[in-house]
Nucleic acid binder design. Structure first.
Lengths: 135, 135
DNA sequence: TATTGACTTCAAGTATACTTGAAGTATTAA
DNA sequence: TTAATACTTCAAGTATACTTGAAGTCAATA
């Protein structure tokens, strides 16, 4: 079986050692082998970390990620909870994307505007108003 | 001039009183009029809060938002900084969107998978593996 | 054998962004 | 005039997610 040191896992996942230990402390990473005072990780741990990062990067709070894995351990009893958690999270991501897209347009307008301002200042011509550029 | 109480601003912006006071404390909201022991807000404040929320909702940290408004007060000297801040932020938002879109696909697969699991449990048929549903 | 390097634990500290609570003030309604 | 309402200040507390520091362990090389 292929195994990894904490350093290798850290490099592969981009998570610092401290975070890997922290995730283990709070029960997010389970069954990490402790042998001769060293942690040993397997591909299963790497997959789990990938999953954690997917949740984390979509702004699911750690408590909810923990909940998800608790449910997964009792799939039969918790199937409704797990489906609801996932569907709610899917909606959350869709909403996050549309919020970002909406605000992106506004930021792009700002980029336009301040570039025009910059140009005007460089050429010593009057600074445009927001409405000159955007309105 | 149209003015607003803290309550009205809170209702219009969705920000609690405490947050409006906090933003004022840290210098994010400026020139709020204090009259007869009450705060008075104008449409300019509302526009400023809109801007703050645009930045906040796109995950620009408060320190950077403060920086932006400090730059804006010295547009001529800080035009390069402000353009850089905005362009960097634009890129950040584009990256956030694509990260979310990428992870959304994975979450949608999970939704599919757990819905199949749920169905199987309800019909007393064997639970599919991930590869059965997704692979 | 000693020292180096890579790990270990555990408690305490940090960063960000607010929120809460206690005590006070001003305006209005009874 | 008293009581209710709606605000006010300011310090301290909270939530989330880690990070840091000090002191110790283990195996391998000098």
């Amino acid at each position: 079986m292929i195994t990894y040191t904490i350093k290798e896992v850290s490099e592969k996942t981009g998570l610092p050692h401290s975070t890997l230990r922290y995730y283990e402390d709070i029960g997010l990473l389970k069954d990490v082998i402790h042998e001769k005072n060293k942690r040993i990780y397997t591909d299963e741990h790497l997959r789990r970390i990938e999953g954690i990062l997917c949740f984390k990067n979509t702004n699911l709070p750690i408590k909810k990620i923990l909940e998800f894995y608790r449910y997964e351990e009792n799939l039969e009893e918790a199937i409704n909870d797990i489906v609801e958690l996932m569907e709610t999270h899917e909606i959350s991501i869709v909403n996050q994307i549309s919020t970002l897209q909406h605000h992106l347009e506004h930021i792009q307008q700002k980029v336009s505007y301040y570039n025009k301002v910059k140009e005007s200042l460089e050429n010593n011509i009057p600074i445009p108003t927001w409405d000159d550029v955007i309105g």
